[in-house]
Design a protein around this nucleic acid. Sequence first.
DNA 1: ATATCATTTCGTTATATGGCGAAATATAAA
DNA 2: TTTATATTTCGCCATATAACGAAATGATAT
Lengths: 122, 122
Amino acid sequence: MIYMASHLITKKTRFFKALSDANRLRILKMLQVKPLCVCEITDILQLAASTVSKHLSILKENGFIKEDREGKWVNYKINYGSSDPRIAAVLTSLEFWIADDKIIASDKLKVIKVDRNEVCSR
Amino acid sequence: MIYMASHLITKKTRFFKALSDANRLRILKMLQVKPLCVCEITDILQLAASTVSKHLSILKENGFIKEDREGKWVNYKINYGSSDPRIAAVLTSLEFWIADDKIIASDKLKVIKVDRNEVCSR
DNA sequence: ATATCATTTCGTTATATGGCGAAATATAAA
DNA sequence: TTTATATTTCGCCATATAACGAAATGATAT
């Protein structure tokens, strides 16, 4: 089967694809509360660390988040200073683009309570 | 394998998923020029009519476009009056969200020239 | 009524995506 | 330098997605 390969426009879909996964939206919402390391996110989402790492790399590649190594931890945080105006538009009014619901509210509570020294290194 | 089924947040991804396909973005850009029927879009995108129909149904289900039957043709047009503010935001400034490129410029030219009585019923 | 044309629905197929665990890598601690 | 911890990369598998053609449906024209 021959698939279309219009590279120019395919690049445009990457922005939307990055936002097309429920767990990535949850991650953005959590990072809005405060920066988190991979194992903290892993603990809250209840996914394999490798899966979370992959989600974070997609969000980072697309400019939604930044990473910041701190010793053995890698902290991820919202990239409010993106030069892409679409990303800035989404990030500066996340509530508008991604409404809160019970799951997100619950995630945010967990973000506040999560303790890196407990959930990691178990 | 157990997949997450958080219905509330999965609904959120539908908006972005609808915009995550290159051909659907091309369709939105074409409809921005003027309303088109399925066979006109099929002719410009060079896809099977069934494929185009499916893309249109996804855009319609998500509130990006409206349909309007005119005899044996079904005309599709941009739904500028969406009650979902995110959709309104994207549609009222499509240039901001989906930049034009060579392919889109070429599509738009074809939209201006396309003649329903030629491309359909061949 | 029947034929024709536009569109949608359905069944099939290939690629993309997202999940996991294991192995590899990077840094800190012992 | 060895060990432990955090993260990433890799290979594999299941589901989702997007493509097609054929069949079904809606509407006009003969």
